[in-house]
Design a protein around this nucleic acid. Structure first.
Length: 676
DNA sequence: TCCTTTCGTATTTTT
DNA sequence: TACGAAAGGA
């Protein structure tokens, strides 16, 4: 039996409390993953619960992977059979897979990512409404928000007030209709559809309640309404539920997350037991004090104060630089000298920023000092064009009706199929109510499009169908390889890449993808059934599995990442850059009154640091090619003055530097503007 | 049909 | 500055 002895009393209590719904308020670095994993162990070993009746749900594949790993270390493999540890989306997908018929889907349905959805929305906007595409972003966000709120298109149309609402709502309806025609679901549907299904078909819900008898939810503050609904339905009267969350780390409200779900929980489950984990095992007391002081400016549902045993530690440095160039330079040299003085490793350092573009200058400076770095969160493997193309081909194999996939690769490599041809094809498809791919087979097609294009289209369709046939016969991987050879994707890459080396890399990526696919098809699922091609593709689209290989580069490199991407991670030495108004409270957030979320973002960033923390800001900054004066972030004034050490530019006057408070800051500024 | 130029615009992004 | 989307020429 796994021992609970290395845990504190709150953690132990959280693990042992199984008699009712439980909310664990877990501050940053308080060992929440331990609580979840040990609780799974406890449930199987001490409560005699079968693992196949336990489900732990997270938001990221990474978190799910980590959790699986740690459970594997705690519990003998014989007892983890059937245990569900997955993301919300993966769980939703599992449910849809089992119940696809009830949802009106055919096997082999596709999953549309945001890009696919956007393409479809733009297309509809143009075709059905001949409207400008200026606000396609807004419409997509609105549709996503509606799905997250479990709002049907019908309701959305009824509730529309302005003309824009009505347009978005009508488009929502069309969009769903097209998804259905394409035999596709989008990311939001992965939650929306199961939640709706459970609501409408109690018998199905009952079946799933049989399966999932104890539910654990991680990062609960990030759940949106549909996710919460799914959770609520699954646990219902049994109330066998543990959720772990921290309202102060809610930084995804702009994506529909509802931190108030924490409070709702208390209303929906009056029996709810609340346990707080306040001991932090990560940071120095000073860092925690800064974080606590900052976040005290936000209203709170549950009061909570992090503390640690680690002693005060170094002062928190606030460094003022003249401009963004100096800022990047300073961070680079700081890392260099600090590493030498402390015999630290590059990988012990992380630089966090608000927006991705902020990394650019820093990269240049790091390069010039030959400091190795690792940029996370940039263009991921799956957003590479060659991978998107390859995925589109794969999707077509399983689901030829997937128009988004079709449109992506029908002219890649070039087949002389341009807008005119597609227009003709699409008209015909619409008349017959069939997909673009099926429309290729129509006899009347030759009246609408050029002969040459038609031949190419038929060739293309033939290729896909032939490969698909080979796949079902079992020769999946060779058939796929052959497909890529036959369409001569390699030449296309060579033509379109800036350098031969780039083409080589791209091609390598495709082989990587195929290798991964092979590996997935070779492994069997927990149910002892081999993974089908479309299941494997589904996993790939949900970004599962492959990203692990990218991360495996455990090299000695400085970490560069956005504050959002830093959640859940920790580093001995942390730099936060660009602590300026309009950047850290971001301008749009200021305008939209979302200061509290920005404050939480800084809270998350601060609590990443184990032992040292430094923040930088600039007096002026070039933005969009123009020099702009900037002012320091209001959040700097909210940090405990006694724990900060101000540096940079004001050093000419150390006396004043030593003085505390906002007045000093202003004075510092006046000095500066005089100097300039 | 496809390649070039020009113009306009500018967070964060777990899946 | 820097990227992606519209427009214009071959």
């Amino acid at each position: 039996m796994a021992t609970l002895s290395n845990l504190n009393s709150q953690q132990r209590e959280a693990i042992r409390y199984v008699d009712g719904p439980l909310l664990v308020l877990a501050g940053a670095g308080s060992g929440k993953t331990s609580v979840i994993t040990q609780k799974i162990a406890y449930l199987t070993e001490q409560c005699g619960m079968k693992a196949r009746h336990i489900a732990a749900v997270t938001f990221t594949n990474k978190a799910a992977r980590e959790m699986k790993e740690r459970v594997g270390q705690l519990v003998d493999k014989r007892y983890t059979r059937g245990l569900i540890v997955s993301t919300f989306h993966n769980l939703g997908l599992t449910i849809i897979r089992r119940e696809y018929k009830l949802l009106g889907h055919r096997p082999g349905f596709s999953i549309y990512d945001q890009q696919d959805s956007m393409t479809l929305i733009k297309d509809l906007l143009l075709r059905e409404f001949s409207d400008s595409m200026d606000d396609c972003n807004l419409i997509q966000a609105q549709i996503s928000a509606w799905k997250n709120e479990l709002m049907t298109p019908g309701k959305a149309i009824k509730q529309a007030i302005t003309q824009e609402d009505l347009l978005a709502a009508t488009l929502y309806q069309q969009y769903n209709a097209y998804l259905k025609a394409y035999n596709a679901v989008d990311f939001d549907d992965l939650i929306y559809k199961p939640a709706k299904l459970f609501k409408e078909q109690p018998a199905i819900l009952q079946k799933w309640r049989q399966r999932i008898q104890y539910l654990l939810v991680d990062e609960y503050q990030d759940t949106n309404l549909s996710q919460y609904e799914l959770v609520r339905q699954l646990v219902s009267e049994r109330q066998a539920l543990t959720v772990v969350g921290d309202d102060d780390q809610s930084i995804y409200a702009w994506r529909g997350a509802r931190p108030e779900n924490l409070a709702t929980l208390q209303q929906d489950f009056p029996e709810l037991k609340v346990i707080k984990l306040e001991q932090n095992y990560r940071s120095t007391a000073r860092i925690l004090k800064a974080a606590n002081t900052l976040i005290a400016n936000n209203p709170h549902l549950f009061e909570k104060a992090l503390w640690s045993d680690f002693g005060m530690g170094d002062e928190i440095r606030v460094i003022r630089m003249r401009n963004e160039e100096d800022e990047a330079e300073r961070i680079a040299t700081e890392i260099l000298s600090h590493r030498l003085n402390n015999r630290a490793h590059y990988k012990d350092y992380a630089v966090l920023y608000r927006g991705n573009h902020q990394s650019r200058l820093l990269e240049i400076k790091l390069q010039s000092y030959q400091i190795p770095y690792q940029l996370s969160g940039g263009t991921s493997f799956f957003s590479r064009t060659e991978i998107k193309d390859a995925m589109a081909y794969l999707r077509l194999l399983v689901n030829p009706d997937d128009d988004a996939a079709f449109l992506r690769v029908v002219n890649v490599p070039r087949r002389e199929v341009g807008p005119v041809t597609l227009e003709g094809l699409s008209k015909l498809a619409q008349q017959h109510g069939i997909s673009l791919f099926s429309a290729i087979e129509l006899d009347t097609l030759d009246q609408h499009i050029r002969e040459n294009s038609l031949l190419n289209l038929r060739q293309f369709a033939e290729n896909i169908l032939h490969t698909a046939e080979c796949c079902t016969e079992g020769d999946t991987i060779p058939a796929i390889k052959q497909l890529f050879t036959r369409v001569d994707y390699e030449s296309w890459l060579q033509q379109n890449c800036s350098s031969p080396a780039q083409a080589e890399r791209s091609l390598g990526n495709i082989w990587l993808l195929i290798e991964q696919l092979q590996r997935m098809l070779d492994t069997e699922t927990e149910e002892d059934e081999p993974l089908t091609l479309n299941e494997a593709i589904g996993k790939l689209i949900l970004r599962d599995i492959l990203e692990k290989q990218e991360e495996e580069a455990e090299e000695d490199k400085v970490h560069l990442l956005t504050m959002h991407a830093s959640k859940g991670l920790e580093f001995p030495h942390v730099f936060l850059m660009g602590l300026e108004e309009d950047i850290l409270p971001h301008r749009n957030s200021i305008e939209n009154n979302q200061i509290e979320e920005e404050r939480r973002l800084l809270y998350v960033a601060i609590t990443r640091a184990r032992s040292t923390l430094a923040m930088t800001y600039c007096a002026e900054r070039k933005q969009f090619g123009e020099k702009l004066e900037t002012s320091p972030s209001r959040f700097l004034d909210e940090l405990p003055e006694d724990d900060l050490q101000w540096e940079g530019l004001g050093q000419a006057n150390p006396e004043r530097n030593k003085a505390k408070g906002k007045a000093t800051l202003d004075a510092l500024f006046n000095d500066l503007s005089d100097d300039c």
